[in-house]
Each structure stands twice: as structure tokens, then as C-alpha cells.
């Protein structure tokens, strides 16, 4: 089953060690086939709203910086516990902050 992990941008400034640890973590998960896709997100996005026939585009930012989603990872695991375990390891690397995890259905 697939899970989408979304990271909220934390307060902590990334340092050299974080980059190195993350690179090793990403490499390991990619090699084992767990990590299907990952990427960082621009905290300033834009919003599109539809109402009837009308579609409105609004430029961001919309939330406080630390509430914005800063990155995502799409993982393929066997169980929810595996997803939790991976996210736990991830949180250890990035330090304080918050992740949202949703199971992905389909395609």
C-alpha cells in the first residue's frame, strides 16, 4: 500500500549534517524500493477555487510559514506500521516538527 507523507516546514535551519543524513536516508529507501517519489515544495503556492462556472486563482502564501507543507514523500510499504516506522526514522533526522500521512488509493 502507498502512503503520502507530507512534512510541514519546521523552524530549524537545515545544516550540513541534516543534508548528509537525509541524502543517505533517501538513497537507502530508494534502493529498497520503498520510496517511489519525493520532493520539496515551495511554501508559497497558489490556490484555485471553483464556484459554478467561475474559477478563481489566488496567489499565496495562505498559512503561517511553519504550517505550510515543505516536502512530500510517496512510499510503498506493506502496512501502516511500516509507514509509521519510516516516518519515525525521518522525524529523528529532521528534528522537531510535524508530518501528515495519508494512505493513497488507486491508481
Amino acid at each position: 500500500m502507498r502512503y503520502l507523507m507530507m512534512q510541514k516546514a519546521g523552524d530549524a535551519e537545515p545544516d550540513e549534517k541534516l543534508y548528509a543524513d537525509m541524502a543517505a536516508f533517501v538513497e537507502e529507501l530508494t534502493a529498497s524500493g520503498v520510496l517511489l517519489a519525493t520532493g520539496g515544495l515551495d511554501p508559497v503556492g497558489f490556490k484555485m477555487t471553483s464556484a459554478g462556472d467561475e474559477i478563481t486563482v489566488t496567489d499565496g502564501p495562505f498559512t503561517e510559514a511553519k504550517e505550510a507543507i515543505g516536502g512530500f514523500a510517496l512510499i510503498e510499504v506493506r502496512s501502516k506500521e511500516e509507514a509509521i516506522e519510516l516516518c519515525r526514522r525521518f522525524r529523528r533526522i529532521v528534528g522537531d516538527g510535524e508530518s501528515l500521512i495519508h494512505q493513497v488509493y488507486g491508481p
Partner: peptide, 14 residues
């Protein structure tokens, strides 16, 4: 924490 499930998940990964 559900320890048996966590141990199982770790086991499968490691």
C-alpha cells in the same frame, strides 16, 4: 505504541 506491530515492521525492513 503497538510494540509487536512495530517490531514486525522493523523486522521486515531490516
Amino acid at each position: 505504541t503497538n510494540f509487536p506491530a512495530t517490531v514486525g515492521a522493523v523486522w521486515k525492513q531490516e
